[in-house]
Design a protein around this nucleic acid. Structure first.
Length: 441
DNA sequence: TCTGGGGTCCTAGGACCC
DNA sequence: TCTGGGGTCCTAGGACCC
C-alpha cells in the first residue's frame, strides 16, 4: 500500500528498502489514466441524491437505445456499456436513467486534462476520459512515477470523480494494467517484468485484437499474448496485414510507440438510429437533411471545409451500405450538399425499403487551404457530375441564412430551427445522447 | 421491446495515366 | 498485334477503439 487514496496493486513486488523508499525506476514510465465510470460519476457528483444508487447513462430502452455508462452500483446487476438499454432495464429495474449531459462531461474532462498536463507536458488524450502520460525520469525531472500517479489520483479525487491508473514501460502495458483494478486502482508493472505480465493474458485484452482477430487467432490455437508473441509471422501477416509487426511487438512488451500529441481531425460525422424504421422518400430525405445540417453546423463551428461527403444507411436487417463522393471544392455548407446526398441515397436505396439508421459524414480536409470564395466558385463553375441544385441558389443569401440559424441553434438548441424537409426527428430517434462509452469492459 | 455514436485505419478493386 | 505493369486517385466495406 502506497497511498491514502485508493490502493496500489503491485503486479510484481518492488522490494521496498528498509526505509520504505521506492526502488529506482529504470526505463520509460508510461501512465494510462482512465476515469472510472466517468459519465455516471459526473451525474452522481451533480445529483447528490443519486450517489450510492444505480445510475445508467444511455438511450431509451424502448427506442433501440444502448447503455453508454453504468455506475458501479448498476454494474452489480450485470449492466455494462454497449448493452441494449432494454436488457439493462430488465437487469436493473430500479436504475436511475439519464440521456447524459455532454457539455458538462467535456467541462470536467478539460479540468482533469489540465491537471495531467500540469503533471507532464508529454500527454496524449485518447478520449474524453482517458489519457497517456509519459512520466519517464529525465535529467530535469526525476520524481518517482509512482508518486506522480498517486498525486494525480488525489488531485482528480479532489474534483469529485475517481480514476484508475496503469503504470508500465509501454503504452500497451499501461493500458492493460489500468483495467486490472478499478475503481481508483493503481496497477504497476515494473521494468523487466513486461513478459511475465503480458504472456498469460487472453489475446482480447490487448488493444488491436477485436472479435474478428480473436476468432482467427483462436482457430489457430492462439489464446494468450505469450502465444501471440511467439506465433508464426506469416500467419499474423495474414490476419493483421500491415499491422502484424506492431501487434507482435505489443504482445511481447517491446512496442516503443511514444506518447504523441493528438492528430488533427480527419472526419466529422453524425448518425442516428430511429426508434422505428423509415421507409418513404419524404421520411428518409428529412432524416438526411437533419443529419446534414448537424454536420454542416459542426464544420462551420470548427472552420473546416471538406472534399468528401458520405452517406451511410443501415437497413432493418442491420446490413450497411454507404456511398461517398469527392467534391470539386471543399465545403461546409449543408444547403449545398444535402441535395447531393438525396441523389446519393438513390444509389443504395429505393423508397419502400425500411431504413434503421442514417449517417452523414465529411472528410478530406487535408487538401489545400480552403479559399474564402470556395463556395462562390463551386456555384460558378461549369456543372460537373456531382453538381446538383442547392436548396437556395444565391450563395450569399444561403450563407447568411446558415449563419443566422447557427446563432439561434447556439442559443436555443438544434431543435429551434428546422428547414422544410427536416421534420422533427427527435421524437423518433433513440433519445440517447450517448456518445462515447469509454469505460467499456 | 436486441444491439448507439463518433471516430481512425486498412484493404481490395476499378479507373486512369504513362 | 490479344496483352504488361507501376503509380495514383477514388470508392465500398469492414475491423477496431472508446
Amino acid at each position: 500500500m502506497y497511498g491514502t487514496h485508493g490502493h496500489t496493486n503491485d503486479r510484481e513486488e518492488p522490494g521496498i528498502d528498509a526505509a520504505g523508499r521506492l526502488p529506482a525506476w529504470r526505463g520509460p514510465a508510461i501512465l494510462l489514466v482512465d476515469l472510472d465510470a466517468f459519465f455516471a460519476s459526473v451525474e452522481q457528483l451533480d445529483h447528490p441524491g443519486w450517489r450510492g444508487k444505480p445510475v445508467i447513462v444511455g438511450g431509451d430502452p424502448d427506442k433501440r437505445g444502448v447503455v453508454s455508462t453504468a455506475s458501479y452500483e448498476a454494474r452489480v446487476f450485470g449492466v455494462r456499456s454497449a448493452m441494449p438499454s432494454s436488457q439493462a432495464a430488465r437487469l436493473c429495474p430500479d436504475a436511475i436513467w439519464t440521456h447524459g449531459h455532454y457539455g458538462r462531461y467535456r467541462e470536467m474532462s478539460r479540468k482533469i486534462m489540465g491537471i495531467l498536463l500540469d503533471e507532464s507536458p508529454r500527454i496524449q488524450q485518447v478520449s474524453i476520459d482517458e489519457a497517456f502520460l509519459d512520466v519517464s525520469p529525465t535529467a530535469h525531472v526525476n520524481e518517482h512515477p509512482i508518486l506522480i500517479a498517486q498525486r494525480i489520483q488525489k488531485r482528480v479525487a479532489d474534483l469529485g470523480v475517481t480514476c484508475s491508473i496503469g503504470l508500465g514501460t509501454t503504452k500497451t502495458i499501461a493500458k492493460i494494467a489500468s483495467d486490472m483494478d478499478k475503481p481508483q486502482g493503481l496497477t504497476i508493472v515494473y521494468p523487466g517484468r513486461e513478459k511475465d505480465f503480458l504472456s498469460p493474458l487472453p489475446i482480447r485484452t490487448m488493444s488491436g485484437v477485436g472479435p474478428a482477430a480473436e476468432r482467427a487467432l483462436t482457430s489457430h490455437g492462439i489464446r494468450t499474448l505469450g502465444e501471440l508473441a511467439a506465433a508464426d509471422e506469416a500467419l499474423l501477416k495474414h490476419i493483421f496485414g500491415k499491422n502484424a509487426e506492431v501487434i507482435m511487438a505489443r504482445a511481447n512488451g517491446g512496442d516503443l510507440t511514444p506518447v504523441a500529441d493528438d492528430d488533427p481531425v480527419k472526419s466529422v460525422s453524425n448518425e442516428t438510429s430511429f426508434a422505428e424504421d423509415l421507409s418513404s422518400a419524404e421520411e428518409v430525405e428529412a432524416g438526411i437533411a437533419t443529419m446534414a445540417s448537424k454536420v454542416g453546423r459542426r464544420l462551420r463551428k470548427k472552420g473546416m471545409r471538406g472534399h468528401t461527403i458520405s452517406l451511410k444507411l443501415r437497413f432493418s436487417d442491420r446490413s450497411i451500405r454507404s456511398v461517398q463522393k469527392r467534391l470539386d471544392e471543399a465545403t461546409d455548407d449543408d444547403l449545398l450538399f444535402t441535395p447531393l446526398l438525396y441523389r446519393m441515397a438513390r444509389e443504395i436505396w429505393e423508397p419502400g425499403i425500411p431504413v434503421r439508421l442514417i449517417g452523414v459524414g465529411m472528410a478530406g480536409f487535408d487538401d489545400d487551404e480552403p479559399t474564402q470564395d470556395a463556395l462562390f466558385d463551386v456555384l460558378q463553375e461549369a456543372p460537373s457530375e456531382n453538381d446538383v441544385k442547392p436548396i437556395i441558389e444565391d450563395d450569399e443569401k444561403r450563407s447568411g441564412l446558415l449563419a443566422a440559424t447557427d446563432k439561434v441553434k447556439d442559443r436555443f438548441g438544434d431543435a429551434a430551427v428546422k428547414f422544410g424537409r427536416e421534420l422533427s426527428m427527435e421524437r423518433r430517434t433513440t433519445g440517447s445522447g450517448s456518445k462515447n462509452s469509454s469505460d467499456y469492459k
